[in-house]
Lab assay of single mutants.
Amino acid sequence: MDALKSAGRALIRSPSLAKQSWGGGGRHRKLPENWTDTRETLLEGMLFSLKYLGMTLVEQPKGEELSAAAIKRIVATAKASGKKLQKVTLKVSPRGIILTDNLTNQLIENVSIYRISYCTADKMHDKVFAYIAQSQHNQSLECHAFLCTKRKMAQAVTLTVAQAFKVAFEFWQVSKEEKEKRDKASQEGGDVLGARQDCTPPLKSLVATGNLLDLEETAKAPLSTVSANTTNMDEVPRPQALSGSSVVWELDDGLDEAFSRLAQSRTNPQVLDTGLTAQDMHYAQCLSPVDWDKPDSSGTEQDDLFSF
């Protein structure tokens, strides 16, 4: 819950932080000083300027060897085509990944977070970031790969997607708890209302004896509580940590079903599988986004697919 609360507080303090972009060759504004600060901008989305290598189908939802083989196929196909790589912007948030063309600003792909089953910074092609997700059109699994400016960037994108998945799962947990509370309150309110109706004398007997209905007592009954809980029953509950912020979080049926399955089948359902080692994760978390744009010590960066 700490990640969720800190993310909400950060967004309320400075929503404009989320509009910064990394990996864009110096076009961005001043960047936060450390990885923790940038992680807090996830709610509205972190932007990464990358190059799209392509996509291939895979048979399993996750796995280092599986993704490595898929990336190898994608890279080989991209090299064989001889075409310049498409420059894209990857927007990562707890909602998922939005992929747009840098030149036309046209939407290429919009992947809900619950469809993503794996992401990684490839070991062999260490400047490549990739994720595996279920197609929104059918049940097939797709591996999408992107060329980053350097290994640090690939690791940073991988960690960002993993963190977005974690925050999304926490949102789901909060929403589920809130819905259970509202359902319980609604049920209790309905029981109270039913009890009051059972003990209320029939209207005919009131008229016969000349008694008047006590409207004041009726007004004191917990009807307002019942209506408050039943009027918006169809509205999706939102985490309290975000009250007053500009973010509107809505959970669709697909996300609810997917996270429910994860909660039942996995020990740590909030953790998205990645190909990063503990050492890689520690190294990337210690980086400032400013470091992502620094040239690798191995030599001059080449803006070309064939540089790796």
Rank of each mutant, 00 (worst) to 15 (best):
C143I: 06
A18M: 04
P222E: 14
V290F: 13
K179S: 09
F165T: 02
E217Y: 05
S298N: 15
D252G: 12
K176R: 15
S297Q: 10
T36G: 14
W22M: 06
T120L: 03
P289R: 04
K184A: 08
Q264D: 11
W172L: 02
F129H: 14
S246V: 13
D2W: 02
R73M: 15
Q163R: 14
R182K: 13
S16I: 10
K294P: 02
I98D: 04
Q187P: 09
V271R: 13
Q279H: 09
L287P: 06
F306S: 08
I113G: 03
S49H: 06
D101F: 15
A69T: 15
S135T: 12
E216N: 12
G8I: 15
A3C: 09
V111R: 08
R29I: 14
Q187K: 07
K30T: 15
E59D: 05
M153T: 15
D303E: 11
D296A: 05
N268H: 12
L31Y: 11
R9N: 12
M46L: 07
V58E: 01
S297Y: 05
W22F: 15
G8Y: 00
G8F: 00
R73E: 10
G194F: 11
A76N: 10
C148V: 01
T218E: 09
S288I: 05
Q270Y: 14
E170Q: 03
G82F: 13
K51E: 01
A10V: 15
A78I: 07
V174K: 01
N211E: 09
P15V: 01
R95T: 01
Q173D: 03
V167L: 12
N110R: 14
Q20R: 12
S67I: 14
E177S: 15
T160A: 13
E250R: 04
K72Y: 11
R266G: 12
T77V: 14
L107K: 09
L99F: 12
G26C: 13
A7I: 02
R9D: 14
A133W: 02
Y283W: 10
L193G: 14
R238Y: 07
T160F: 09
V174T: 01
S140D: 13
R196Y: 02
K166I: 03
T36I: 14
K176W: 04
H125D: 00
E64C: 13
A241Y: 09
G8W: 00
S260Q: 09
F169Y: 14
G254C: 13
S186D: 02
T160K: 05
P222C: 06
K83S: 15
Q279E: 12
D183N: 11
V111A: 03
Q139W: 04
P222N: 04
I108K: 07
V157D: 00
S67E: 02
A284T: 11
K84Q: 12
V247K: 07
P202M: 09
T158G: 13
T77N: 14
G23P: 05
C199R: 13
K123S: 05
F146Q: 00
G45S: 08
L242G: 11
D253C: 05
T231Q: 09
G190L: 03
G194R: 10
T274G: 02
A278E: 09
V226E: 11
D252L: 04
R115I: 01
T225K: 11
E217P: 15
R39P: 09
S288E: 04
L50S: 12
R27Y: 05
R182Y: 10
T41A: 09
R196T: 09
C143A: 01
A69E: 14
E188Y: 02
T120A: 09
E40V: 03
L206G: 10
G26I: 09
R238A: 12
R115V: 01
L159R: 12
T104I: 10
S81W: 04
D122F: 00
M55Q: 13
K176P: 04
E40Y: 02
L90N: 00
F146N: 00
E65D: 11
Q240M: 14
E235V: 13
S117A: 14
A258G: 02
S81G: 10
G194P: 04
A208L: 08
V92K: 00
A278V: 12
E59I: 14
N105I: 02
P202G: 14
N229H: 09
G189N: 07
H282V: 06
D273W: 03
E257V: 07
R115Y: 07
G96C: 07
A185S: 14
D304Y: 05
Q155S: 05
M281C: 06
K150G: 12
D214I: 06
T218R: 06
A76Q: 05
S205L: 06
P15N: 07
F165E: 02
E59R: 10
V271Y: 12
F165H: 02
F48D: 01
S307F: 15
V290D: 08
A76F: 04
P32W: 13
L99G: 06
D291C: 11
